[in-house]
Amino acid sequence: MGNEVGSEWIRLIVGAVIALAFASLNALFLVWLERKVAGHIQLRPGPKEVGPFGLLQTIADALKLVGKELITPSAADKKLFVIAPVLIFMPVLVGFLVLPFAPELIIRDMNLGVLLIFAFSTFSVLAILAGGWSSNNKYALLGAIRSVAQNVAYEIPLLLTVMSVVLMVNSLRFSEIVQAQGHIWFIFLQPVAGLIYLISATAETNRAPFDIPEAESELVAGFHTEYSGMRFGLFFLAEYTNMFIVSAVATSLFFGGWHGPFGFDMKIPGIVWFMLKTYFLIFVIMWVRWTFPRIRFDQLMNFSWKFMIPVSLANLLVTAVVLKFI
């Protein structure tokens, strides 16, 4: 018994270390990918000087960030100011513990996995509020306020759409949800939920066109205006890791996780399918960012409260009724 608990702990710790390493590498890669995607959309090559295809560019950038001075504004709430970047990054890591990369590649296959991920992802808004408030900067505060309002508005449709998937499987366990999609992905059974999930997830990660809390042309840099060096780097890292998490969750919930399309696995390992789909979704999010202008704050709220929430509620209701009678 004691031996089993011990091995569980070892598994957890090793998993957490791998997750941390993966999160950092993933962020480095995503930053490079984002710049390449942006570059090609904008008819320019993107980074290409440092390393092959500019792959080492983000490492150079990261080194620069690490080497920079950490400035704490004299009027800031110092404790909160220092904690906020850590607070935004750590909960994101928890997501890796339950993500089903492949049938045997789940660090901890909890029966409440879906709930855990969404519970922890709400932490980010707290961290943004803490960072924006403690900076004692007017732009930062405006950004923090916007962020809170936006997240409250978008968590609801996000969770409602997840609920309709959970109803179909009758489980909050990721592995069971993925297994249920062996033959047909849920995106085909729940297209409305899938679409609303993707929109809400983009808003959840504060990506354009929903990058209102950090709206560059309005609020300079929003909640992280006063952050410099690696503290800013942590916000940055969290954003990209968060992007991976929401895409991975979307893959698991709607795009069949480690399964190939319509049951054709084509002898490709599950992890490859999973990563391919996740990075494709990330690419879509980037594509959207570099194509659309930013939505105005009140329009965003209207869209959420007057359109997305009713639609996702109706979708949930229809799902429940249909499931009851078949």
Binding site: A38, Q42, S217, W290, R294
Partner: peptide, 13 residues
């Protein structure tokens, strides 16, 4: 102007 509205790509075009 489009960049002010948050769209970066038309700026470079």
């Amino acid at each position: 102007y489009v960049m002010d509205l948050g769209g970066f790509t038309p700026f470079l075009y």
